[in-house]
Structures are given as structure tokens and as C-alpha cells.
Design a protein around this nucleic acid. Sequence first.
DNA 1: AAGAGTTACAACCGCAAGCGT
DNA 2: AACGCTTGCGGTTGTAACTCT
Length: 582
Amino acid sequence: MANSRLLSVCVNRRIDGELGFQESNVLKMNRTTDDSDNAMVPKDQVDSPSNEGSSGGLLTGGGQVLKKGPWTSAEDAILVDYVKKHGEGNWNAVQKHSGLSRCGKSCRLRWANHLRPNLKKGAFTPEEEKLIIELHARMGNKWARMAAHLPGRTDNEIKNYWNTRIKRRQRAGLPLYTSNVPFQASSENQQSQTATAYGNGEKRPNELLQGNSFDFPDAIFDSFNANHGALSYAPPFSDISVSSMLSQGFGSQNYGFMNPMGNHVKQFRESETSLPGFHGSVTTGLPPLEQFSNEPSEKIQRSFGLGYPYDPDPSSKDLAPFGGAVPGSHALSNGNFSASRPLGGTVKMELPSLQYPESDLSSWLACSSPPPEAIDNYIQSPPATASVQSECVSPRNSGLLDALLHEAQARKTQSSGKRSSSSVVAPGGMVESSGLNFCEAAWKEYNDPISPLGRPAASVFNECTPPVSGGSLDELQPSKEPSDIMLAAAEHVSTPNVGERDISPCSDFLRPDALLGGSDWLENSQTAKEHSTLNDAIATLLGEDLCSEYKEVPAGTSSTLSQGLGLDSCPWNNMPRACQMS
DNA sequence: AAGAGTTACAACCGCAAGCGT
DNA sequence: AACGCTTGCGGTTGTAACTCT
């Protein structure tokens, strides 16, 4: 592999990082010369002042061409000299005052990532790696914030490391998060981190959704760690960044193999806010949406997944999440509960270079009890691993619509008397499949009266995570009828400390029909019209047949569910108002 | 030996927030 | 309030070195 090269680079950088500013810069320049001037830079871009700007440079206002591409040692020296004299900031003045043919942006980046003192170069130490993993689990792709926790490291460095790590582990079929990663860092640790990184009123990524005292992601991890070993069918969720996905929100990019969980956690996270019962039962009984009220709408959009796939018109941003233009239609406007969401979540945002348009968690549906390793592979491996897929009939082989069709077919074939199972096979099945384990993990937590997660969180898990494939499902919910489940959920939401109830995941809740069709609470809401519109949109996306298929949901399921979720008893209608404020 | 694939890194780009005018 | 500027962030791309076939 590239270990030898990496090693040599690391050695150089290690030396580099141990030196002071002056020596470091000398070495940096040397290295820059080595790496950039001779390696990274096309020959026609270096050592040839006459060619400066030939690499796609921009013309400044004064007609000077701004150079692009790798920096030369001379440029570095100029920049360093400038910063020494004038300090950081006002980067656009660098070009004016120093004659450097670089835009301020580029100068800032060069300084921040390479030239500034105290930069720690070299390979990440195991401690740093561990911290990065932990931070990523906590923060998601918040590289700059992660860098704040790693002195001497830059966001770019961390980002590159992470992406490389992902690719590597993906290929190796290794878990992204090793099981020994202490996801459940102490609350005070997190708080201290928060104080450090966000001391200037900066909102941490989860802050939008973590306005209460719940250390939610950590609790989730505790739950996972405590439970996943007992679940033969459960993937090693400790290996999956749950909280990272929690923190990433819809707008952030989830790597493809993480999407299943990512979507699911997104659902959960959104449920955290969209389900009044969650917070309401814990704190004030009011959904803590005040925290959103001051957020710019775009930010909220990001956090709540604007542009969810059901939006037939991605440009229709007036379909604000969380009920912006669909007041009252929380489930819809959240874009979530969306197990029904076609995989990939937001069409554009969730297909970064490292993503795969499909991962294969849907195959879980066909494999009732894959070994954890297999599941892990499902998560980690790109869909190209046909051999893996072939082991289980994956409805996703031919894409989302095929998957939907497949699942619709599965719904047909599955007994109508097994409604809960039929609901298992929902659009975006792989999301649900991940959710099973998620749910299961939370299940015990839920049943733990002193769970740090608390009932509400678990209940939300359950409410938002449908059961997965048949066998497992039956094992999970041996005898509960959906109605019972919903009733139990209702009590669940409204009575915070009922810990012994066996509450089934609200399987139907995630389905389009649950969200859009036959929904009494929706029909009774002010947003029936919008609901109808969105329903049509979904119909367009999924096809009328599918939509009608999903409309075969037992009557009252959704409404029951809404009751179960406390939609009636909780100040549900307040939520959109809070968002409308933004 | 040659081409394809992978890795690590640097840098760019677009977007958005913050701030001052 | 509107506008422009600066800064920061996250995603993406480009490239050389390296490895594999």
C-alpha cells in the first residue's frame, strides 16, 4: 500500500511538527517545495513566474491574475512574512500589500492549514484517532469543530483523514467505529468540550436538537453498547456512528453505508423534536422548539432535511421543514418519519463522493438473522459487493423504485393478518431494517426505569423505528396488536415514567400512508390540503400504485398512532408556529 | 513493464454567517 | 433594511506517490 510513502511523510511531518515556528516553516517550505513544487504542482505551474496565473487564475480588480494551485515556497514565505507583520485576518489585503498573487481566501487557507505555527503535522496518534472517531460520532462532519478539540490539527487534515479512513475501512469491510470507541463520553466531558468549542455562543451541531438536558446521543450509545451484543441479528451498532448521524441532520452528508442508520437516526432526531411526547414527557411538556425559533430558516432546513425526496420539486423550498409551509403537518414537513423516505435521503446531498447511492441494508429484510459480521458488511460495504447481496435477495438491486416495488410486493405476499409484519416492509426498507436494531437497543433501555435515555427517548425510538424483517419482528413483538401498540405508545408518550410497557415500534408510522394517507389526525388538521398536496407528490414519486398500495393501511392506524404519539394530547400544533417564527 | 486502482494530501469552490456601512 | 465585504466551513476535486494486477 501507500504505507511506506505515508510513513515517510509522517516522519517528515513528525519532525516538522516538533519544531518551532521558524524551523517548522523552513521545513514546511522545504516540504512544500518537495511536495508541492515538485510533486503536486504541474511543472508548468512552478518555477516559472511567467506562468503564474496560467493555471486558471482569476483576474483581480486591478487586472492582476490571481494564481491558483499549489503554493510555492516563495509564496509561503511571503505569506508568513505578511502575517508576521500584520497578523492574521484581512486576508484580502495580503494580495494588495504583499504582492502575493493569491486571493485572500487562498491565503487564509494556506496559513491555517500549513503555515501557522503550532501546527501538528504527521500522522494522527492513536489518541487523536480515537478522539476523532469520538468527535465524529458526536459531531458528524463538523471538521472545524473537531479540529478545535485537536490542537495543532486542521479541519482539512481531519476531514481528509476521516474520508480516507472511511474509504479504507469501507473497502476492508471493517466497522467504521470500532467497538471500543468510548462513544459515551461523560456528560461533563461533552459539556466541557462544548464549552471549549462553542464558547462564543457558537451552536454546536446538535444544539438545535439538544436543547434539553438529555445527552441523547451518548445515551443511545450506552444503550447500544449494552444491548447489541444480546441481539443476534443486531448489527454492531457500536460500530456505527449513531450520534454522528444524529448530529448531522439531513443536510449533512452521510456516507452511503451509514445512511441506513443515518436516515433512521435522523428520523429519530427529528422525532425528538417533532414528537411532543419526547420532550414533553421529560421536561416541560412543550416541544422545545423555541430553540429553533432563532435559527435561520436555512439552518433549520438543513437540520430537518429540507428537500426530502418526497418533495417533487426540490426547488420548492417553501415546503419548509417542520411545517414551515405545512403548518401542522409535522410528520410530513419533517420530511421524515421517513422510513418511507427513499434511501439516500436528500437526493443531492446524500450522494457525496464517498457515498453509494444504495447500500444494502435492505437485504436485512430478506435475511432474518444475518450474523453481525454480515450486517456490518452490509453497512460498510458498497453495493458493488454483489456477492454479499446475492446472499440475500435485495430489493435494492435495481434501485429505489424497484425496492419500493419489491416491498410493495412483499406487502402483498405477506399475510394481511400480519399487519405489523407488512408494515415492516416499508419504502426505504433498509432504513427500517437498521431501525429494528436501533429500536431493539433502545428497547431495553426503555424498559430500564433508571435509564439515562429515559422513556421518552426510547419511546421515540420505538415509535419511529419500525420492526424489521419478519422473524425478528415476531420475536420482538410476539403478541401485540397494532392497536395495542399504539395505545401503549399513547400512554407512553403522555406518562413519562411508565417503564414496563411493551411498546412496539410504530411500524406504520414510517410509511407514506401513515404520514399521508388515511390519517385522521392529518385530515383533522389544518394542513389537510398541504397534506394532500404532498401526498400527490409522493404518489408521483412512488407511483400511484404504490401509493394506493400503502393506503391499504388498516384504517385508523395512523390516527391511532397519532394518538399514541401524543399528537392529540400534546401541543403539537405549537410546533409549526415555532418554526414559522423563523 | 505498463496500466489500473488506491491512498494521502493540498487546494478550490460554493455557501452562509457575521459585521460594518 | 439592504448591501458588500470578510471569514469560516464543509464538500469536492486534482494530483503525485504508491500498490496491485
